[in-house]
Design a protein around this nucleic acid. Sequence first.
DNA 1: AGTGATCAGATTTTT
DNA 2: TCTGATCACT
Length: 777
Amino acid sequence: MDTLFEGLNKDQQLAVKKTEGPLMVIAGAGSGKTRVLTFRIAFLLQKGIDPFNILALTFTNKAAREMKNRIGELVGFQAARNVWMGTFHSVFARILRAEADKLGFPSNFTIYDTDDSKNLIKAVVKEGNLDPKIYQASYILSRISAAKNNLISAEGYINNEDYMLEDKKAGKPYLGQIYSIYQKRLTQSAAMDFDDLLFKTNVLLRDFPDVLYKYQQKFKYILVDEYQDTNYSQYLIVKKLAANNENICVVGDDAQSIYGFRGADIKNILNFKKDYPEVNLVKLEQNYRSTQVIVNAANSLIHNNQNQIFKTVWTDNDEGERIKLIRASSDLEEGRLIAQQIFEDKMNLLAKNSDFAILYRTNAQSRSLEEALRKMNIPYRIYGGLSFYKRKEIKDVLAYFRLVINSKDNEAFNRIINFPARGIGKTTLEHITIAASENEKSYWDIIEQPQKFKLNINAGALKKLSDFVLMIQSFKAELETIDAYELGNKIARGSGLISNLHNDKTPEGISRYENLEALLNGIKEFVEKDDDSETPEEESFKGLSIFMQDIALLTDADEKDKDDIEKVSMMTIHQAKGLEYPYVSIVGLEENLFPSVHSIGSRVDLEEERRLFYVALTRAEKRVVLSYAESRFRWGTLSFCEPSRFVDEIEEKFLDFPRSRSFSKSAMPSNPYKAVSNRNTRKLSNNPTTISGDAGKSTYKRIQSEASGIVNRPTSSFKAAEIDDLQVNMEVEHQRFGLGKIIKIDGAASNKKATVHFSKIGEKQLLLRFAKLRIVK
DNA sequence: AGTGATCAGATTTTT
DNA sequence: TCTGATCACT
C-alpha cells in the first residue's frame, strides 16, 4: 500500500490519507490536484471500500473518464469501473431516471438542450402574444436558469417580490408567467432542461426522505472536483447526500473560478467551514507544472483581485523563459505571427505539434488562426465551436430518435413532423398546437388519437398524420428488440432522411451525408464496444435509448482524441480548464475582448475575467506567448483595439516585449496574396478533424476592406509621441481616456511607466510601451 | 407548399 | 459577414 504514496509530497499524502470526515483541499494551479483525487479514490478502494459506495463528481465527462483510467491502472479496472463518477448532470440524470416515477416523469424523459429550451420559450412567448423582441428567448432562459440554480420554482418566482419587481422594471412583467408555462410544457413533453437535472434532484431528495436515505447510505464517500465552480443547487445536493456520513472531500481553487455566469458561487468554498466546523483543510501550494516565470507572472496578475483565499503558489522548477509578447497590426497578422512562432519553436525546440495550444477568449477568434496554421501546413484541432451534435443533419436524425424513445417530446416533434416534407403544413400544425394546449397534452398525444381530441382538420391531412404516427410506432415497437445501430439505420432510412441527403449533390450536401454516416458509425462503435460504459450495475442490451442517454450530456470536449497526437490544440480558455501544454499561446489580449466588454462594468465580473486569464497562463509548462492585435474584424467591420489591461498587470520582469516598430510599418497590411482566406473556413472549422483545406475562392473583399480600413483609419491624425519625449507635468491626450496630465514617470528605458491624471476618469498608470499618448502641451 | 428575397441579430464563456 | 427567420410571391 505504501507504494501508493511514493512520489506524493506531504500535503498531497495528507489529502489522500484523510479519508474520514470532511476535508477541503485548496489546490493551486498545477499542484497535482488530479493526482490527489485519483490516489485518494485508489486508496479508498485499496482499503476495501466498495466502489459502489464512492461518488466522485467531476466537471467534465472527459475528466471522469481519464480519472477512471488512472485509478484502473493503480488498483485494477474492475473496481475503477464501478465507482460512480461523472459530472453532476450525468450522475443525477441517471438517478433521476431510476426514480423518475416519484416525480411524475417516465424514466425515458428527454433532456432538452439550450436550443430546445429556447425554441420552447419562443413558442410560449408567441402564444402569449408577447413581443419576442422584449421577451428574448436567450434572456428569459438565463433568467429561468438563474432562478432554478437558486432553487426557485416558477411558483416561487411569481411569489417573489424581488424577482417580480426586477422584471417589472426591466419592462418584462410576464417573465414569471412564461417560466410557469415553460415548466408546464416541459412536463407535458416529459422533458427536463439542464438545470432541471439539478433542480429536480433537489426536489427528489427533499420530498422523499426514503430516497435521500437510500443515497446517503449508498454514497458513503463523496468527492467533488472543481468545487469553486459549483452553484447553489449543486452545493445543496452534495450537502444533503453527505449529511449522514460527512465523508466529503471537496477540491478546488478559488483563483480558478470561471463559471460565475452560470451561477457558480465561490462562496461554496468560502463557506465550507461553516457547514463542517470539523473540516480539515489542506493547501496544495507547490506547482509542479510550470516554470518559475509562469508561476510568478500568474501570481502577480491574480494579486490584482480582492476576493481571494490566501495562498502562495510556488515552484521548484526551472526559472524558464520570459513570457513573449507579440504585437500584430491585425487579427490576420496575429494569426500569421502565432503560426510562425509555433513553426520556429517546433524547429528550435524539437517540439511536437501536440505540445502547443492556442487559447482564446471567444470561439470566433479561431478563424484567423486557422487560416494561418493551414497556410503553414501546421495540423490543428479545434475544440468546441459548433459541435458535431449541433449540426442540422445530426439534430434531425436525433430528433427522430428522441421521438421514438419519448413521443411526448414536442421539440423533437416540431423538428421532424414535416421533415423530410410530407405535406403537413402550417395550418395543420396550428390545429395540433391549439388542441394540445387546450387539452394539456403533447402534440403526439393529439395526433395519436385525433378523433378523441376533436382535431379539426381535413381527411387528407389526417391521413398524412396517421402515416407519420404509424411510422414512428413501427420504430417504437423495435426499441427493445433490436440494438441501437440496427434501429438507428432503420430510422435514418425509413424516415426518408438518407434519401433526402443522398439527392443533394452539392458539397455541403455530401458533407451532411457523411456526417450522418459518421453518426451511424459512432452508434455501431457504441454497440460493439463491450465494456467501459459509464453506467455501472445495469445494462447489457445496447438499445437506442441507452445510446441517447449516453450522448445527451456529451460535449465536444468529451470526444476521444485518438488522432490528435500530432495536432496543435485550439480552444477557448474555458475549455482549457484542467489541461496542460508545454507551450501555450494566449491570443487576443485586447480591451473589450479580454477582458470582454460585458465584464468591464463591474468589479466582480472583471475579477472573474482576470481569473480566466490566470487559468490560461497556468496551463503552460514551459513557455507562454501572449499576443494582441491593433485592429480586428468584428461583426464584419474593422475595429481598432488597445492592449489588454491584464498585460500591464503582469509584473514587467516576466515579460519579453516586442521590438519597437514604427507605427506606420506595423499598421501596413503585409502581402495580401498571403492573406487570402477561405470562404469555407467556418464550415471547415466546424469539423474537428479537418486539418487542411485549399484556399478555394478567396474572400478578396475582406482583404481589401481591411486594407482600406487601415488607410482610412479615422484616427490616423493621432500621432503618438516618442516615449522619451514625454515628461512629467506635460498635458497629453489618450485615444480612449481623453485629456490628462502626466504626474509621474518611473521605470527605466523601454519599461517606462507613467502615472497620468485624466480629467475624465482620474489617475491611471500606463505602460508607455503600449499607451499611445499625444503631447498637447 | 415551396422558393427567393429581404432583414435583423449576432459574438462571452457551457453542463 | 454570416445565419436564420419572416414574408411575399408563384
